[in-house]
């Protein structure tokens, strides 16, 4: 599978944020987006997920052998990606487990049919070290724990593309390790990730792209 961005031009209001961004991301690789504040990392991720319509260019997902699978305009890219933005998407009145169980049911696709919802939730809780907090209302979690809960969404449903916007914010060292391990495992299984970050992340197979200046992958 490939994620293809062709000549993306993004605008916010009248301001041009990105100009002619192009890349092809192959299965099993991650793309790190770096650049100063305001260089358009989040905007680019929102465009990849299909929230923001590019004023020029397209985002596409291609299957094996270059077969066309879908574009962001018709929502097909959104259906194969996980988006974890600055906000965690957590309901403070639900317990940690209820939050995850909802996403496990809501985001489930054909690839998840083999495992029951409860099983996927248990695995995700364990992977992100949230099992001790499972029955606690999410409103009582610390910032880092909330972040982990938001990231645990990545594990409750299998999706090939992960779009992560500064995923390491407020995580401690051990949690960053959990996250990089999760990303590595995802890449090894043939997944892709686009990660906006200010910190260098040590991943197995990674390219990086600097935004704000010449917008071509190194």
């Amino acid at each position: 599978m490939q994620l293809v961005a062709e000549n993306l031009t993004l605008e916010r209001g009248a301001r041009r944020i990105a100009n002619g961004v192009s890349f092809v991301l192959e299965s099993g690789t991650a793309l790190l987006l770096t650049g100063p504040n305001g260089s358009g990392k989040s905007t680019l991720l929102r465009a990849l997920a299909g929230y923001l319509r590019p004023s020029e260019g397209t985002v596409k997902v291609r299957g094996e052998n270059g077969a066309f699978e879908g574009s962001s305009e018709s929502g097909e890219v959104a259906e194969v990606c996980h988006f974890v933005g600055h906000l965690d998407g957590i309901k403070t009145h639900l317990t940690v487990k209820e939050n995850l169980a909802f996403w496990a049911t809501y985001l489930a696709g054909p690839a998840d049919a083999k495992q029951s919802t409860a099983h996927r939730v248990e695995d995700a809780l364990e992977q992100f070290a949230l099992d001790a907090l499972a029955e606690i209302p999410a409103g009582y979690l610390s910032a880092g724990q909330k972040r982990r809960l938001g990231l645990a969404r990545l594990a409750v449903a299998k999706r090939p593309i992960w779009l992560l916007d500064e995923p390491t914010v407020s995580l401690d060292v051990a949690s960053v390790k959990v996250l990089t391990d999760a990303i590595d495992a995802h890449l090894k299984a043939g997944g892709m990730a686009v990660i906006a970050t200010h910190l260098p992340m040590e991943l197995a197979s990674v390219r990086s792209m600097q935004l704000g200046r010449a917008q071509v992958p190194a």
């Binding site: 997920a49 959104a78 933005g85 965690d88 309901k91």
Partner: peptide, 13 residues
């Protein structure tokens, strides 16, 4: 406000 809407939009629904 809590970002849930973004994730809801990536669902199959």
């Amino acid at each position: 406000e809590d970002g849930t809407l973004d994730v809801l939009a990536t669902g199959r629904l």
